[in-house]
């Protein structure tokens, strides 16, 4: 039987752009270019490797996001995923992690899955909680924050490098996995992959397809509120010297003046 892999990918504002907040204190997605979160490229890569090692596997990439989020799906398809699902609905604006995980879980159940692979965190929200929430909602094991992962005979094995220890983890499928940026560099889409992606199916679902009500998601359904957002004041310009043989000593003088020595 085919191994059904669902990879969750997020479309995020480019971190090297000038990111800011919209008037309703949600992340402004209009003024900054978006892209497939780099940390989710690692998830797509591991899915591709697991699929290559399996006899028969199918990779579906899934995103919850605005119209432009299709770009993220295209990128993942051009890397080699087989098909895509885009959950899009005006009522999703302002959805928090709780709501996002609800929508993703419903979509994953509807799509059918043996293995869910997520990134370690989104590069905009950086919460790193959606994979654990998916495992809780789907009632399956979480095998998360892996720097190494493999699947064999219905068992997923991985290495999790924590602060205090490095752990080897094991769980039976179905399961939710998340991988870190230590898991191995993501491939670039080939020209052939980019061409092929254009013909791959992208399904669009809205809330009603997932039997969800508008109140369960969006700003209204959110479990948290942002009351204010302030730009951090720019750091005051410091002293910059060119090393002409005494740079290390000058620096020591500065540190002594600041009482670090």
């Amino acid at each position: 039987m085919s191994l059904r892999i669902v990879v969750t990918v997020k479309y995020v504002p480019d971190a090297t752009g000038d990111r800011h907040f919209a008037d309703d204190l949600t992340v402004d997605r209009d003024d900054v270019d978006g892209l497939l979160s780099e940390l989710d490229e690692y998830a797509v890569e591991q899915a591709l490797q697991i699929a290559e090692d399996a006899d028969d596997a199918e990779i579906t990439v899934l995103t919850v996001g605005p119209e432009d989020a299709k770009d993220a799906l295209r990128k993942a398809l051009s890397m080699g995923a087989d098909k895509a699902i885009h959950v899009e609905d005006d009522d999703l604006h302002g959805t928090d992690a709780m709501g996002t995980s609800l929508v993703l879980a419903r979509a994953i159940e509807k799509a059918g899955f043996d293995l869910v692979i997520s990134g370690m965190a989104s590069t905009d929200g950086t919460m790193g909680v959606v994979p654990a929430l998916l495992a809780e909602r789907l009632g399956v094991p979480q095998v998360t924050l892996l720097s190494e992962v493999s699947v064999e005979d219905g068992t997923v094995t991985g290495r999790r490098d924590g602060d205090a220890a490095s752990e080897t983890l094991q769980a039976s499928l179905p399961a939710v996995v998340s991988v870190t940026d230590q898991s191995g560099e993501a491939r670039y889409p080939s020209f052939k992959g980019i061409m092929a992606a254009k013909k791959k199916p992208v399904e669009s679902w809205d809330l009603s397809d997932l039997d969800l009500e508008a109140e369960e998601v969006g700003l209204e359904g959110a479990y948290t509120v942002v009351d204010s957002a302030a730009e951090r004041p720019a750091r005051t310009a410091g002293t910059i010297v060119k090393d002409e043989g005494e740079g290390g000593k000058q620096l020591a003088e500065f540190l002594a003046g600041q009482k670090f020595i």
Partner: peptide, 28 residues
């Protein structure tokens, strides 16, 4: 990185860092 610094040295770290370490040891 120089946009953030309170103090910056434009130079080769292989010269600046050992000199800094020496100077700190001397001062301490």
């Amino acid at each position: 990185i120089f946009d953030l610094v309170d103090y910056g040295v434009v130079g080769d770290l292989f010269d600046v860092v050992p000199q800094l370490t020496e100077e700190i040891k001397t001062r301490k």
